[in-house]
Design a binder for these strands. Structure first.
Lengths: 114, 114
DNA sequence: AAATATACATAGATTATCTATGTAACTAGA
DNA sequence: TCTAGTTACATAGATAATCTATGTATATTT
């Protein structure tokens, strides 16, 4: 159901958003996206991991192996740079969204990003 | 100000949307996006034309040279396939948007696309 | 006459995307 | 204890997308 370009465009803001709420690891990020989207956004692991690696190479997130419940998992967390990037992503999203809403004649988001 | 991925993801729905309101040509589409976005979305012509060509090759839109006011312009219009695609694009957009809104704890779009 | 705006086109370097595939450990059920 | 399913991460590399830079030409404004 997901459009290709949109899938690609939404991974970054979604990952940054999820990590802004606390550290998390790849597999669980996929579950959370599935859960919060009501099953509409189904990410594959092979699609997510390269994006996580790229975000880490860009210093937007950082990683740490943590053992918990006899499971070693690679936890990611947002860096300061990633936090700033998330704000930009939010602003950009709202900007495009509001433009679409004007064309579609639907209510806009009249909010300030913080 | 625009994020790269978002720029890419929004061209298709925006072009289809603009053409759903009537035939239009490349240069004017750029002006309309600029105008409706309040100057926030600034498209270059070199970026738009290849997208128009691609959408035409995919039969989403069709083109016709029309002379008007001593100007020859290539007008594009939405095909039936493009009209259906626009509906899908709208649904996908709302789906991703609502997921983001749930994370950001902002109001969702509770609308039905038609 | 010059500068600016209108209008379309495309090569091609750069970058992004994601499927397919691989590894391995844990868990639940039969 | 065997099997199937789940959890968890990784990456090669084929495929595709993206957009800047550049080119052409006409019309309009200064």
């Amino acid at each position: 159901m997901m459009t290709k370009g949109l899938m690609a465009a939404s991974t970054k803001p979604l990952i940054l958003t999820i990590l802004s709420r606390g550290k998390n690891y790849g597999y669980d990020i996929i579950q959370e996206v599935k859960s919060v989207s009501g099953g509409e956004l189904l990410w594959s692991d092979g699609m997510l991991y390269p994006v996580l690696h790229k975000l880490e190479s860009e210093k937007m997130i950082s990683s740490e192996w943590i053992e918990k419940d006899d499971r070693k998992r690679k936890y990611y967390k947002l860096t300061e740079k990633g936090r700033k990037e998330l704000i930009k992503e939010k602003e950009a999203w709202i900007s495009v969204h509001n433009t679409l809403m004007r064309f579609w004649e639907l209510p806009e988001m009249k909010i300030s990003i913080k």
